[in-house]
Design a binder for these strands. Structure first.
Length: 690
DNA sequence: TTTAGGG
DNA sequence: CCCTAAA
């Protein structure tokens, strides 16, 4: 099965899980609400399906964006708090990094080494692991080994330098794994810079500090179970061993990165390293750098950081976002989608709201297995609904105020945080410590009656919620865990997914202990717990959509960050356009583009079409009303002529097709080209008039 | 991917 | 210019 579930994990040290953080910071981040996943099912039509997929992908990208944003904020605020600073780096789909391994995938040959690969660019495949299925995008942020692998930075043992990385990965196909040189942005000059760089950071760096060591894969192997585990991470982190040795060369490509990263982190001393590192980071599609560094690296070089300080975070996005659908309707919103797929976990959970959640769960496994082994239960939560909101507003209120009111209501709810409740056969399941088995949740039938609710944590909000009121909550953590770890073996039952204790740290970490079984580094896991990482997770289900969150994005910021710069058409271009249209007509923009603007990369056929549209408009208005560089009247006349001519042609065509109407092809007959040499064209129009 | 249009 | 529905 190539389908590995995709798992995205956002782990943040500091004891909060992403959800918590999100909840808390929601407002800050413009996190506004949840919404049902837009595309639960793909249409039948191939075209639509594609479109739907694209949309889904976009949303996922957005989710990433959101996560990045949130994480960035959190990190930036972490200075005082326990959260270690970290930076997040994301890449488009081209980049893949699998912090999580899928069970299946993990096993493969690849498992051994980590390699950075770049399909388009850089890639980091953890040993095996994680090949993510196509459209999914995962984001991971942690001090864990994974990160190390990702080539991003790792944290140092001391808090001072921690740099966390966030990765997104999405592999189109597992096969891409070829190992390639890690040069990040290959094209970018920056790319190499950092890495190889003279800095022997590695040498300088304490091993333990460097993420490098962590790189070890073995966990991968073990983990192959598929968990992303914190434990492993912790372990590594905690232990200074050199993993490198273990895997040896395999990683080496990756190691470069690591090194680079490492230097940075430790680079209290060198500003240059930092610069290099930054350059390297910049080569990624996205980058979000919270102020993080401030402290860490640079006491000395404040200057460097200055900029960052000023802007709390540095967010860069490239093409990825271009795809984000931020249409008018979406404007200001950020969509996030999280879906999970479990392969084997016994549990998982999702949050959602009481009301409208659509959940689907399937128990899988034979009954008997339970006893000795546990069964795994698959949950598929399709969506969470937004808790019901009650809003009272005068009928004379404006739509705008209504929107604001809704926003406030939503925000209020989210503000307090959300909890997940589990409802089984209509009853809330409050005992977090019981196993799924005990509740019979593993049973397929039961699953059908299993529901999850998303409830606000805050009392007030709770009131607003309709159904959810008090259901119990599951910790997201729990959910996370499952995802993260896919290891089949040990988890199970005991570890019920659901029970996680409420807040704590949970995340998967705790579980990790259990999981630890799989992973070699169990011991470490404990540490983690304490650390409280949080994991957010998401997943991938292939097509399963689990949860969609729609945060309100900060309205302005990323909005159209990438709107193309305006590039007015020069008279020369207009002329070329007019000429091409005279010959080709108004319905063949691609040809026009090829013919007259083939080399103008910034002019798309859509642009040409739009320009034509404006030219026509311009030609029809008085000269006084025209703006911008004046277009010679002569050209405008030609525009009108051509427009009229071709309009008629089209009209004729249409007519012909439908009902055979008598149309004397006055103009049509001759070559358009010839006809259009001059003003004569206008005359052509006349006849057509029928 | 292109077209065709609305925004 | 952007965004999309359609084709």
């Amino acid at each position: 099965m190539r389908v590995a579930p995709q798992v995205a994990v956002l782990e943040i040290l500091g004891g909060m899980n992403l959800w918590d953080m999100v909840s808390q910071k929601r407002l800050d981040n413009g996190f506004g609400g949840y919404r049902l996943p837009p595309i639960p099912h793909f249409p039948k039509s191939a075209k639509r399906k594609r479109s739907a997929r694209k949309r889904r992908d976009d949303e996922q990208l957005c989710a990433f964006d959101l996560l990045v944003e949130v994480a960035g904020k959190l990190s930036s605020e972490s200075e005082n708090s326990t959260l270690p600073p970290f930076c997040i780096i994301g890449r488009s789909k081209e980049v893949a990094y699998a912090s999580n391994k899928l069970p299946q995938a993990s096993k493969p040959e690849h498992s051994e080494p980590l390699c950075l690969r770049l399909k388009s660019k850089i890639y980091d495949t953890a040993a095996g692991g994680s090949v993510v299925s196509n459209s999914g995008i995962g984001i991971g942020c942690s001090a864990s080994t994974d990160i190390c692998r990702s080539g991003l930075i790792r944290k140092s043992s001391e808090n001072r330098l921690e740099l966390e990385a966030m990765d997104i990965y999405s592999l189109e196909d597992p096969m891409d794994l070829d190992v390639k040189p890690p040069a990040p942005a290959s094209s970018d000059s920056s790319a190499e810079v950092p890495v190889s760089r003279d800095n022997p950071c590695s040498s300088s760096m304490p091993k333990h500090e460097s993420g490098i060591e962590h790189i070890v894969h073995r966990d991968d192997d073990d983990n192959s179970s598929g968990c992303t585990h914190p434990n492993t991470i912790t372990n590594k982190a905690s232990r200074p061993t050199n993993c490198i040795g273990d895997h040896g060369e395999q990683n080496f490509s990756a190691s470069k990165y690591w090194k680079a990263a490492i230097n940075l982190s430790k680079s209290t001393n060198s500003a240059s390293d930092y610069a290099i590192f930054m350059a390297w980071l910049t080569s990624f599609d996205y980058m979000l750098l919270p102020d993080i560094q401030r402290k860490p690296f640079l006491h000395d070089k404040k200057t460097c950081y200055t900029r960052q300080r000023t802007q709390r975070s540095y967010f860069k996005r490239r093409k990825l976002f271009e795809r984000c659908p931020v249409s008018a309707s979406n404007r200001g919103f950020f969509r996030m989608k999280v879906s999970n797929t479990f392969k084997k976990d016994s549990n998982k959970l999702e949050a959602h709201d009481p009301r409208g959640t659509a959940i689907r769960a399937n128990g899988v496994t034979s009954p008997k297995a339970e006893q000795s082994s546990y069964k795994s239960v698959k949950f598929s939560i399709k969506s969470f609904k937004i808790p019901e909101l009650y809003i009272e507003i005068p009928e004379t209120a404006t739509v705008g105020s209504l929107k604001r009111a809704v926003m406030e209501a939503v925000t209020a709810i989210l503000q307090g945080g959300l909890r997940v409740g589990v409802i089984l056969q209509g009853k809330k399941v409050r005992d977090d410590n019981k196993t799924l088995c005990q509740f019979g949740i593993s049973n397929g039938d039961a699953l059908d009656s299993l529901g999850f609710t998303l409830e606000p944590t805050t009392t007030q909000m709770a009131q607003q919620l309709t159904s959810s009121d008090n259901s119990r909550f599951l910790c997201l953590d729990d959910a996370v865990q499952p995802l993260a770890r896919i290891p089949p073996i040990s988890l199970p039952i005991d570890r019920d997914p659901s029970d996680a204790s409420p807040q704590p740290a949970l995340t998967s970490c705790p579980k990790s202990d259990h999981d630890s079984v799989h992973s070699p580094t169990n011991t470490l896991s404990l540490d983690k717990t304490t650390e409280n990482k949080l994991a957010l997770v998401a997943l991938p289900a292939m097509d399963v959509e689990a949860l969609a969150v729609v945060p309100l994005r900060k309205p302005k910021r990323l909005e159209h960050a990438q709107r193309r710069i305006r590039r007015p058409f020069s008279v020369t271009e207009v002329e070329a356009l007019v000429e091409a249209v005279e010959k080709l007509g108004t319905g063949r923009w691609r040809d026009v583009k090829l013919r007259a603007f083939d080399t103008a990369k910034h002019r798309t056929y859509v642009d040409l079409k739009d320009k034509w549209k404006t030219l026509v408009h311009t030609a029809n208005i008085s000269p006084q009303q025209r703006r911008g560089e004046p277009v010679p009247q002569e050209l405008l006349d030609r525009v009108l002529s051509a427009q009229a001519y071709w309009s008629q042609q089209q009209a004729k065509l249409r007519i012909k097709e439908e009902p055979p109407l008598p149309l004397p092809p006055v103009l049509c007959s001759s070559d358009p080209n010839q006809q259009f040499s001059s003003s004569s064209s206008s005359s052509l129009l006349e006849p057509v008039g029928t």
